[in-house]
Each structure stands twice: as C-alpha cells, then as structure tokens.
Amino acid sequence: MPDILRFRGPALRPFLTLAVFAIAFALLPQYATGEVGTANIANVLTSFAGIGLVALALGLTMIIGEYDLSVSSTYLLGGMLAVKTGGDSPVLGAAIAVAAGLLVGFVQGVVIAKLRMSSIPVTLGGFIALLGLVYVLSNSKSVNYSDLKVTLGLNEPVLTVFTERSLIAIGIFLVLAGVFAFTWLGRDVRAIGSDRKAARTSGVRVDRIVIGTFMSSAAISCFSGALLAYSLAYATPNRTVAPLVFATTAALLGGVSLSGGRGNPLGIGCGVLCLAILNEALAVTGSAAYVTYLVTGGLLLIVTIVDAPHLLRWWRTTKAAENLRAGFSGRPPAEAATGGAR
C-alpha cells in the first residue's frame, strides 16, 4: 500500500493541526471584529502560492536530514532573474531562474554529498554569496516587471477562490506528493534521512539522491521566486530571513523533523496552509507589523522546542539531579520534615 494511504500517528498530525487552525479561523468573528468569507480563502491560497513552494524546497532537504539555508537567497535570485530576463517571454525567464537553481543546487549538493559535509556551513556560504549576487544583479534596487498581462493573468481568479498562480503552486505540491507516495524515491529519501549509513549499505544511491534533492530544492525555490515576482510585477533585494522563518515553521508544523527521515509534501502543504491562515487572521484583525514578527518568531520557537530531541531528557536529568542532591544532603525532601522533628 502506498505510504500516503497509511494514515496513522505522525502522518496524520499535520492534517489535524490544519483542522485546528481552520476551525479557529472560522470561529474568529465570534471573538474579534472582522468577517470571514470566500475572500479570506482566496487570500490564504494567495499567500500559499507566494511562499509555500519555499517551504516545500526547504522541507525536502530537511526530510533527508539536511537544512538548506540558501533557500531564502535562491528565492530572491529566482525572482530577480525572471524579472530581468523574462521581459519578452515569461516562460524563458522562469526557465532561466529554474536553470540557475539547478546549477546552485548541483554545486552545493555535490560538495555536501561527495565531501560528506554538513549542509549548514556549505549552504551558509551559498546563502551569503547568492544574496550578494542578487544585490549585484539588481544594483541594490527594486526591479519592475513590465509585462502586465502576465501579472494580471497569474492573479486572475479561477473558480472564485483560486488564481492561476495558486493552482501552479498546488500542482507542484501534488506532483511531488505523488512522487513521494507512489515511487521508490519517497521511500529512499526518507531512508536517507533516518539513517544514511544504513541506507547506503542497503543499496540506496545516497549521493545521487542528496544531490538531486538539493537541485530540486534550489530549483523549486527559484521558480517560486519567479512566480512571486511575476505576480507582483517587481522583484526586490531584501536581507530579511523572513522566508526562512516561514518555511522552517511550515515544514515543522507539516510533520517534517529536523533530525530527518520524516515528512512528505502533503504534510508540508498543510503546514504552509496553517501559517497562511494565521497570517490571514492577523490581517483580518488588523494586527500591527510587530505582532506578525512576535507570532511567527514565537511559533517557530514553540515548534522547535516540541521537535527538540532532548526535551524529555532535560526534564528527567533535572529531576534526577534534584533527587541526587537531596540524597547527598542525607535527607530526601519528603523525609526532611520528619528528620527535623526527630
């Protein structure tokens, strides 16, 4: 049976989380001013399209137990390349963005796989260098995209709540979910994430899959940037790590674990929807900018703490140390009172 149909335990969690977020959002008008309707669903799907694919890109590397810091730069790079080269043909611009992503992913992936390096220092170099490249390409300024037909087309509503670009994003999610559920790739990718040595021993072509994952990750991230730049009609260089915060939170909410080996595209999609709903709720209630920072930063810390491997150990060792200290003093806390009375 395909993995995806075996709903149980952890695989179900992202869907339950999404249900909680959705119900909470639907109940929002009863507790705060603001209305909830199809326009909100359309907004949620728009922000899903805007940044969901970055979460998917980062999530893929997290499933194999790595972390691609450079997604926040490839996201900007894709947009900048598309706007700069897609003036005549948007498809060409998007293709160049994707090609650049594949190249970036290939270089980083080869270094990580062949030199057996941790992905964080490698992609940190990529992250900073590509950020610089975006500033160079754009001359540190926003660059406008002139083909308004493309922009209007991508934002054209389809079936009330969808737009062309949200459908493209959803399509990519579904294709990857299909690959994960129905081919050997999903299984192998997760095997690499849970135990790379064992996967290698059992004949999984680890290096190829690691390189392939980094290539897909960077390509998806670049494409996502291109899609956003076309639909906003501009691309802008930006130093914030906000996309990284969003993508990481979405992936963790979506059942991906930082230790690797867990998660799938559908779960990540649920995680993205949770955050998109949260953003929409903040918008509906007219929250200030700082609230968004606080909520997203706080939420990221909460999901990280829940995901942390030694949460229970800390608790237990603290307890054990207390008991030990009590033992050394000769009087366990419980007996202290009686000891004193004697």
């Binding site: 790590v241 915060v245 990481t248 200030a288 700082y290 606080l294 990221l300 990280t304 942390a308 030694h310």
Partner: peptide, 27 residues
C-alpha cells in the same frame, strides 16, 4: 538553554529569536 538544554537546532532557535527580538523592538 534551548540549544544546549533540550537539543533544539541552533539555526532555527536563533532565527526565531531574531524574529522575536525584531518584533519586541518594533513594538
């Protein structure tokens, strides 16, 4: 504490913290 005590990932903890610090500073 989050990194050393409960084994959370440094990168994620510090970007989360950066977001919180910026939020508090803006507020």
């Amino acid at each position: 504490f989050l990194v050393g005590g409960i084994g959370a990932n440094t990168i994620i903890v510090t970007i989360g913290a950066a977001g919180l610090i910026q939020g508090v500073a803006l507020w």
